[in-house]
Design a protein around this nucleic acid. Structure first.
Length: 662
DNA sequence: GAGTTTGAAACT
DNA sequence: CAGTTTCAAACTC
């Protein structure tokens, strides 16, 4: 079998890149974006090589599934991105072939593999990707390890073709500029396919679409592992993982053979200023998501639940927010390899600064060797990178074996150890049995916190940190979580606010005041917008700008769904103040859409399990669906949406929550 | 930047 | 499972 390297080489063929760049689509995009693509960035190749590899099941965690979707999405995106290029399909095929080659080799090699490559690949094609910022997109790819795929990667092909078709539908059918939103939305839908067989699910979706448009949908090849069976059994976690995967960046779990790739990938992938942005595809994480925390760090950020949303967000951001500044700041710096690629101290500094925000923080481990969950990087499933201040760090590609072994060990102890800490409400409901009606928050911490002194008002509290309310699973004392108290009081409880204020006045400490202020701000936001996921999302968006400050809001991960610790990675990195307005408007738009549709068009961003919940809590009261409808039940979603996009749900069986309650 | 606080993770 | 210790992030000064 080919060595990983070889595959990499194959995959990363510069040729393809050139093609893309030369393609009309690419040009078109360039014309739209102020950012100038950086052709020199090879990164994508890495991932490309990895693309389609089906992650072995090293990581047994559910996250794996998500990667699939994401990767597909990306890939799709690529394909779709080239509307004008009739050859696109052929290109896709080529890529696929390359990917396949890589796949085979990789798959065998490491069970750990990640789909990252796919993502990356995606980037490469993505016009946006050209710029460093574009790389952020790649982050999405960080997606968790996806389930193993057929060697031939036929499924990918199929999906790619399908995507292409989708694109055609959007672009050609409508003439003119591609309907990116639509594409994204579709993509998100795709992501939704939690089943390992996304392809299958995707296919269904496509079929639907095809029936409408008359497009022919390629058939999946029998050899692929993603065959139907899995589609049915898609675990919810898979979905979440998507989110998570997104977050995770830099996980380069490269196999020894792939190292080269990883380094490259890292560099390019990370392009974003913050790690967050950078995809750390992590090793572990990928497993998925990320935690959220990660927003940046989050390398992993992607939370399962929110994966799709995250993706969308990322996509949106990338698509719309690429700015020169971003390009500038987002110099790709992938964790592990960052150093290698930093061309100048200045760049480095920029990167660090950019990443300095919460989102991009890295670990500072001194005794754990970054091989324990104490280490945020490790917990997130990513390798430590330059920004880390850790000592005796073993969480590096060089020690891959050790990392994997340790990871396995930890997972053996607690299978969910690397799962996103924050679970979407739907999941949590299922898993924890939490009553959605009582918990406004869109998500919950999988295990719940155990705060004694922080009143769940500080980041010491994982729930708070994750931007979610406390639940019955929490054993906290004096819970005043602004996102939702354990007792079920509203997230943005005014009471809590007052209490906090009182406390603040009493102490009248500047620091404290600051903190409270922050809390209040959040509350304010929430007050205005009831604690629906949407509101949360919005909140985050609004607050993101501040996220850089210390006490700021919890990592966006929450939005993501979790990135949990790992996932936490929200996209704050992506969001820059200047971009916020755009995002907001976009978000608004999405919401508006929802209104119009009456929910049907729920923001794709929120798609996922959260959707259900969102609707349930919807402020406008338009869709108050039964709490459990949910999420778990695919059918329900379908029912909601006549559009068919939700077909995805079909593929997703109502599965038990991924995260087991402890 | 150093020291303290906090709560999760790890250990017993 | 509960109690204790270890650890690193969060926070304070």
């Amino acid at each position: 079998m080919d060595t990983p390297q070889k595959s990499i080489t194959q995959i990363g063929t510069p040729i393809s890149k050139s093609k893309f760049e030369d393609s009309p689509l690419f040009n078109y995009i360039n014309s739209l974006s102020p950012i100038r693509p950086v052709k020199s960035i090879p990164i994508p190749h890495h991932f490309s090589s990895l693309n389609f590899t089906s992650p072995p099941s090293v990581f047994t965690s559910p996250h794996l599934t998500s990667s699939h979707k994401e990767s597909r999405f990306f890939k799709t995106h690529n394909s779709s991105s080239d509307p004008t290029n009739p050859v696109e399909e052929s290109t896709s095929n080529e890529e696929v072939a390359a990917a396949e080659a890589g796949d085979a080799s990789i798959g065998e090699e490491a069970s750990i593999e990640m789909e990252l490559p796919q993502i990356i690949k995606y980037d490469r094609d993505d016009p946006v990707a050209a710029s460093p910022c574009g790389r952020e997109t790649v982050d999405l790819s960080l997606v968790p390890y996806s389930p193993p795929r057929g060697e031939n990667g036929s499924s990918e092909d199929a999906s790619g073709m399908e995507l292409q078709k989708m694109y055609d539908e959007n672009v050609q059918g409508k003439n003119e500029t591609p309907d990116w939103e639509s594409l994204i939305s579709d993509a998100s839908e795709l992501l939704i396919f939690g089943s390992p067989n996304d392809s299958e699910a995707f296919r269904c979706l496509m079929m639907q679409r095809a029936s409408t448009s008359g497009v022919e949908i390629p058939k999946m090849q029998p050899g692929s592992k993603n065959e139907p069976e899995s589609s049915d059994a898609i675990p919810c976690e898979a979905v979440s993982f998507l989110h998570r995967g997104i977050r995770r960046r830099c996980l380069d779990f490269e196999m020894p053979g792939n190292k080269q790739t990883s380094s490259e990938s890292n560099t390019s992938a990370c392009g974003s200023s913050s790690r967050c942005v950078l995809p750390s595809i992590g090793l572990h994480l990928n497993a998925i998501l990320m935690s959220s925390k990660d927003s940046c760090s989050g390398n992993i950020q992607v939370g399962l639940q929110g994966s799709s949303s995250t993706l969308q967000e990322s996509l949106v951001i990338q698509t719309e927010n690429e700015t020169p500044e971003d390009a500038d700041q987002d110099v790709p710096v992938e964790p592990a390899m960052e150093e290698l690629h930093l061309s100048s101290p200045k760049k480095k500094r920029l990167k660090l600064e950019a990443g300095e925000g919460e989102s991009c923080k890295r670990c500072n481990c001194k005794k754990s060797k970054c091989l324990k969950l104490y280490c945020e990087c490790f917990a997130a499933g990513v390798y430590c990178i330059e920004p880390c201040s850790c000592i005796d760090c073993f969480n590096k590609p060089i020690h891959e074996d050790t990392v994997l072994a340790t990871r396995k060990q930890i997972e053996s102890r607690n299978p969910l150890a690397f799962a996103p800490k924050v679970i979407r409400s739907s999941d949590s409901v299922i898993e924890t049995g939490d009553d959605a009606s009582k918990t406004p928050a869109s998500a919950r911490h999988k295990r719940g916190c155990n705060c004694k002194k922080s009143n769940c008002l500080k980041k010491y509290c994982e729930c708070f940190q994750g931007g979610v309310g406390c639940s019955i699973n929490c054993r906290c004392e004096g819970c005043k979580n602004a996102f939702g108290r354990k007792d079920g009081s509203s997230t943005v409880d005014m009471e809590a606010e007052q209490e906090e204020e009182n406390e603040t006045s009493e102490k009248s400490k500047t620091a404290k005041t600051q903190q409270n202020t922050e809390v209040l701000m959040r509350k304010e936001e929430s007050s205005v917008l009831p604690t629906t996921p949407m509101s949360m999302y919005r909140q985050q968006l609004v607050q993101l700008p501040f996220s850089s400050s210390k006490n700021m809001m919890p990592p966006p991960q929450s939005l993501l769904g979790g990135g949990s610790s790992s996932s936490g990675i929200f996209n704050s990195q992506y969001l820059r103040k200047q971009d916020i307005s755009l995002i907001q408007s976009r978000t608004k738009k999405s919401f508006e859409t929802v209104t119009e549709d009456g929910v049907a068009e729920m923001p794709e961003i929120l798609s996922h399990s959260s959707i259900d919940k969102i609707k349930a809590v919807s402020p406008n009261g338009k869709r108050v669906s039964p709490p459990h409808l949910d999420s778990s039940s695919p059918g329900s979603i379908l029912g909601r949406r006549s559009g068919g996009r939700k077909l995805i749900l079909n593929s997703i069986p109502s599965f038990p929550s991924l995260t087991p309650q402890h």
